[in-house]
């Protein structure tokens, strides 16, 4: 088995397995350890300039990637007219640069602010490094190998789909330039790291907030007869 097979054929499954199994275990048995670990209380100004561009930039691009993966045809049709292709590419690049700017500020903040430094763990730095590599390889591709939204659907999407359908075709990645390989590989690393690090907070995106009532009343005693059906709940059993 070649290194390429190992990195792009086997490792994605290792990463995926870790992601699912460890996340479930952590969610179920160590829920207290899951947090966004915000440090806004300790430093706010630089966080604003870092966190907002980083999170919004990255999550928008990520959604874009997913759309490309699910409906590559849609991308191809959209890119049929050059003007729309330019528009999409420019937006993607701008978002990438925005996220890159954000993570730059966050890294600077983590290294130079005494308080943030003091509360940073080794894993914080590892996460920072991996995500930075992801973003920079992405920007590198956008600049160095232009029109990614155009060729991506035929070059990258088949590979990712092959992984998702359990029919791995790592050979698709083999001939690609280094920047593309790096971008793909750091994504798998990102997935593998997620359950072990603060990145796990991604899965906690609290969308349920949109539909829940404002107030929550929890009953300590088991007497459902007296609960108000809409607004009161019994203490949750956790196991």
């Amino acid at each position: 088995m070649s290194t390429n097979d190992l990195l792009f054929g086997v490792f994605p499954y290792v990463a995926g397995a870790l992601l699912v199994v460890v996340t479930v275990i952590r969610w179920r048995f160590r829920p207290f350890s899951i947090s966004s670990l915000s440090s806004q209380l300790l430093e706010s100004r630089r966080l604003y300039w870092g966190s907002v561009p980083f999170h919004w930039g990255l999550s928008t691009i990520l959604v874009g990637h997913f759309v490309a993966l699910i409906i590559p045809r849609g991308f191809e049709i959209w890119n049929g007219a050059p003007l729309r292709l330019y528009l999409l590419e420019a937006t993607g690049l701008a978002l990438g640069l925005w996220a890159a700017f954000g993570i730059g500020v966050l890294a600077y903040r983590r290294f130079t602010n005494a308080r943030i430094r003091a509360v940073s763990s080794t894993m914080d730095f590892v996460v920072l490094g991996v995500v930075a590599l992801q973003i920079f390889s992405g920007v590198w591709i956008a600049v160095g190998y232009r029109w990614g939204s155009f060729w991506g659907t035929s070059v990258f999407v088949p590979y990712v789909r092959s992984i998702l359908t359990f029919d791995p075709k790592p050979e698709y990645v083999d001939p690609l330039p280094f920047a593309l390989q790096l971008h793909a590989f750091t994504f798998w690393v990102f997935l593998a790291l997620m359950p072990f690090t603060r990145l796990v907070h991604i899965i906690t995106l609290p969308l349920g907030y949109l539909t829940r009532p404002w107030q929550r009343v929890v009953r300590m005693r088991e007497s459902p007869a007296v609960y108000h059906p809409a607004s009161e709940k019994p203490l949750e059993r956790q196991h």
Binding site: T204, P206, G208, Y209, R212, Q215, R216, V217, V218, R219, M220, R221, Y227, E232
Partner: peptide
């Protein structure tokens, strides 16, 4: 947003 805070009914 997480619905982590609650008021005890009793």
């Amino acid at each position: 947003p997480s619905g982590a805070i609650y008021k005890r009914g009793e």
